[in-house]
Design a protein around this nucleic acid. Structure first.
Lengths: 200, 200
DNA sequence: GTCTATAAGAGGATAGAC
DNA sequence: GTCTATCCTCTTATAGAC
């Protein structure tokens, strides 16, 4: 067991696999590519992970840990307005799409459709990632208090926000253009505006 | 060239590949599985298609031809109400999810995320499928006339309907439960109700 | 914990007879 | 157009020395 530096070989493998799964998908990423990119030999990888599937699970676990530091915390630092936070989060996905030429989008969503039918354990981790994301958004919607109608189900609306983000990033990817993403967010904003005006 | 029966070997290969891509994904479907399922030898498949990628393009072309007979026509036959048609279409996806234990959902969406970054020609066909779908929905929204606000962009709202359907089916797949799909459609319906009441 | 070497199989694709 | 046989590459994973 190492003591001095916890950015271990294991961490480097997970980090590298995460990047490659994001750009090429799970099936599209060979073990060889991970080894090369991480500068590691296969003996090391299989010392830490029994199989490629187990590595996938570790990657999805890492995503759970990244949600707050990478996505939620910056949004909460940027604005105190609870509904503003929802759209700031969606804006950060838009920035990510633009930076990557609409190649990426939501790393979890990309994996979700690829592995949900065939990898039960990984699918559960995808679900946990989605649940954690929705819980954060739901928290903001609860914070919005009277600005939203009282009879509106906050959890259901949070799900809806995830739905819109995932569906919108899919179309940005398929079109290699940001327009469909922006159009969808515009409609969602419109919905929120109507909810807010109805709450008054 | 055959004359009597146009349900040719080529058609059977495309049909079989379509089914398998739907259940196992593109990368997850081996040529061997297609051959076995279709009862065909590899010589025949490669007589009709230069490569697996070319077969994928043929499958996506077939989907374009299936859109009206399988999805749109039944919906238009079932109801004359233009907004009712939008939700009848979403209901038919719900039925498909339920029939398949939430394993499937939208065949195009499933392929979209898998191949958009790596298969340019196939990605264009995905886009064409999405465009054709949106054009149908947009037509209904135009038919809705004064029931929707005049300043509302029908094309953008049609995009939004696709966004919600795709995002919702993704979550149904990841959760292996229909609930998130239904919750999202409920929110969309709520949005439409508010649009209709605003148009009055 | 990490190295090299390699097993064992599946993948897509082709050649040439019929 | 369809058949059999097969090539070749890439894949995941393991064995055993260090």
């Amino acid at each position: 067991m190492k003591v001095a530096n916890e950015q271990t070989t294991r961490d480097r493998i997970i980090e590298t696999a995460r990047q490659l799964f994001l750009t090429r998908g799970f099936a599209g990423t060979g073990i060889a590519a991970i080894l090369k990119e991480a500068g590691v030999r296969s003996g090391s990888l299989y010392y830490f992970f029994k199989s490629k599937d187990e590595l996938l699970v570790a990657v999805l676990d890492q995503y759970k840990g990244l949600l707050r530091p990478i996505l939620i915390d910056p949004v909460e630092a940027a604005t105190n307005d609870p509904i503003g936070r929802v759209f700031a989060l969606l804006e950060s996905y838009r920035g990510f799409l633009l930076e990557t030429g609409c190649r990426m989008g939501c790393p979890i969503g990309n994996l979700a459709l690829e592995i949900s039918d065939t990898h039960d354990e990984a699918r559960d981790r995808v679900r946990e990632n989605f649940d954690a994301w929705c819980a954060c958004v739901e928290g903001w919607l609860v914070d919005a208090g009277d600005r939203l109608p009282n009879d509106l189900d906050r959890a259901e609306l949070a799900r809806f926000v995830l739905t819109v983000m995932e569906g919108a990033q899919m179309q940005a990817k398929a079109n290699k253009k940001i327009k469909a993403y922006e159009a969808s967010i515009t409609q969602l904003r419109h919905y929120f505006e109507m909810l807010e005006s109805r709450a008054k």
